[in-house]
Structures are given as structure tokens and as C-alpha cells.
């Protein structure tokens, strides 16, 4: 059994290899600060060459126009006290915090915040139970997906998760996601481009406990 330190190091290296931005945070409050800072520092719906300036067909333009003018942070499924702490920070920074109805925001949200259920060191992979539709959407339609991963939940390989994962798969309505880096394609001339249909960037906050 590799030590926690080894696992964190390996996880970080592999995740960074596939463009994830990995940071370590000492407490949950530090994690929330981090997310809010990131959102506050980000330009609304413009980040990382989201393509906003490129002309599009009318229906696509119309969808884009539905994106909120204010910066939006989606954080579905948080426990009440956490949500309050986050809401306070968002208010202070002029960020619009949403917890649900993400289907109304398919034009895009700035940041989707989720908790990861596990990490796989060998591949730098996050495992996120996304059976809840809002969680699922937060990881899909956000420009930046931020995931908080407790350090103790990192395992060496996917095989180490076979038992809990098997149990998850046996639950009707389960949607479990392995997420490794931001969405990517090499479909045009095999040139790697990050950010296709999913997030343009993935930030992972490893939470020490």
C-alpha cells in the first residue's frame, strides 16, 4: 500500500500531465476562498478563448446570449453550512451563486464546483457520483470545473475501487463519472485542443485533512 504522500504526488503529476491545475488546500474554508478568488479573477464567459468572438449561426448565437451577464458559480448539493459559507463569499465578490435549475443555463456557467468521491493516482482521475442531474450538469456545462478532492480518498489504481464502484453501479439511476483533465479532442489534424463539449479547464483542490 503506497503512502498517502506518494499517492498525492503521483495523482498530481498524472493530472497535471493532462492539463488539470492542481493545488493543495489546508482546509475547506481555504478551498472555498480559492474557488471564489478564481471566479472573481475570471472574465465572465470569455475565458481561455471560449470562442465568443467567433461568428456563429443564429441559433447558436441566441443560446450564447442567454448566458448571464454576471459571473455564475454553480455549486449543487452542498451541505447547508458549507453553502452558507460559500454564499457569503460570493455576495462579497459580486458572484451569482446557483445551486440548481442548471438546465436554464445551458448557454454556459463560469464555474461548476463539486466534491470528488475518489481520486485514482495512476491516471490522475477524479471519480464523481453524478447521479444527481445538477451535479452532472455542473461538471459538463461549466467553463471551469473545480473539484475538491480529500487527500485520503486517493487510491493507487481503478482496481482499488472495484468494490465501492461495483456497489454504485448496482444502484438504479447511477451515473458515475471518471473525469481526467479537461475535455479534449485531436480530431482536426491530430492537433490537441483542450475544451470541446465539456469544461475548458479542470482545477483540482486536494484537501488535506
Amino acid at each position: 500500500m503506497p503512502s498517502r504522500e506518494t499517492l498525492v504526488t503521483e495523482f498530481t503529476a498524472r493530472a497535471e500531465e493532462v492539463s488539470a491545475v492542481v493545488s493543495t488546500v489546508a482546509s475547506i474554508d481555504a478551498a472555498l476562498d480559492h474557488v471564489v478568488d478564481l471566479c472573481a479573477g475570471k472574465e465572465a464567459c470569455q475565458w481561455l478563448l471560449a470562442g465568443c468572438e467567433a461568428p456563429l449561426s443564429a441559433p447558436a448565437e441566441n443560446l450564447c446570449a442567454t448566458a448571464a451577464a454576471a459571473k455564475v458559480l454553480a455549486a449543487p448539493g452542498l451541505a447547508e453550512d458549507l453553502r452558507d459559507r460559500l454564499a457569503q463569499r460570493c455576495r462579497a465578490n459580486g458572484i451569482h451563486l446557483v445551486e440548481g435549475s442548471l438546465r436554464q443555463r445551458l448557454g454556459g456557467i463560469d464555474i461548476g464546483l463539486t466534491f470528488a468521491d475518489a481520486g485514482i493516482a495512476e491516471t490522475g482521475t477524479l471519480v464523481i457520483d453524478s447521479s444527481d442531474e445538477e451535479t452532472r450538469l455542473a461538471t459538463m456545462i461549466s467553463e471551469v470545473h473545480v473539484a475538491i478532492l480529500p487527500a485520503g480518498k486517493i487510491v493507487a489504481t481503478a482496481d482499488d475501487l472495484a468494490v465501492p464502484l461495483g456497489q454504485a453501479l448496482a444502484r438504479p439511476g447511477n451515473f458515475t463519472a471518471f473525469i481526467t483533465g479537461a475535455s479534449r479532442t485531436a480530431d482536426i489534424e491530430r492537433v490537441l485542443a483542450i475544451g470541446v463539449h465539456g469544461p475548458l479547464a479542470l482545477h483540482i483542490l486536494i484537501l488535506e485533512d
Binding site: V18, E133, G173, N174, T176, F178
Partner: peptide
């Protein structure tokens, strides 16, 4: 980037 495991109607 993604491996998705789905069991039944979500």
C-alpha cells in the same frame, strides 16, 4: 478524459 458508468434511467 471521461469514462461514464450509467445504470438505468438517470
Amino acid at each position: 478524459s471521461y469514462v461514464t458508468w450509467i445504470t438505468g434511467p438517470v
